[in-house]
């Protein structure tokens, strides 16, 4: 079970949060066109490794959090607010 350290509420079980998917892409500009929006809505890097992702703390402060989490080990390396910048740790190898 994931334990997520919410910057506002402290460490909580995953069941308090709602996952909102990949946070690595931002919404294209209004005039970016179909291809850009289609990629934004449908295409996912889906890494087997470090993943930047959104979690909404619906059972707590209702803040949107940004996490750096490993999709295989589930290690959470970083938790921040929606507007915080984060970079993914480098993968060894590939």
């Amino acid at each position: 079970m994931l334990r997520i350290r919410c910057p506002w509420c402290g460490e909580r079980d995953e069941t308090e949060f709602r996952y909102r998917g990949d946070a690595s892409q931002s919404r294209p500009a209004a005039d970016a066109g179909l291809e850009a929006f289609s990629a934004y809505v449908y295409e996912r890097k889906n890494p087997r490794g470090w993943h930047l992702e959104w979690w909404l703390h619906v059972g707590g402060c209702r803040r949107l959090l940004k996490l750096v989490r490993h999709t295989l080990t589930h290690e959470i390396r970083w938790v921040g607010n929606a507007e915080d910048q984060a970079s993914l740790p480098r993968e060894p190898g590939r």
């Binding site: 709602r18 946070a23 919404r27 959104w54 619906v58 209702r62 949107l64 929606a82 507007e83």
Partner: peptide, 17 residues
Amino acid sequence: AAAVLEHIEFHLQAVCP
């Protein structure tokens, strides 16, 4: 009700901060 609230909250914080 719950889904719309989340949808709005998400977009306010993620897209329109």
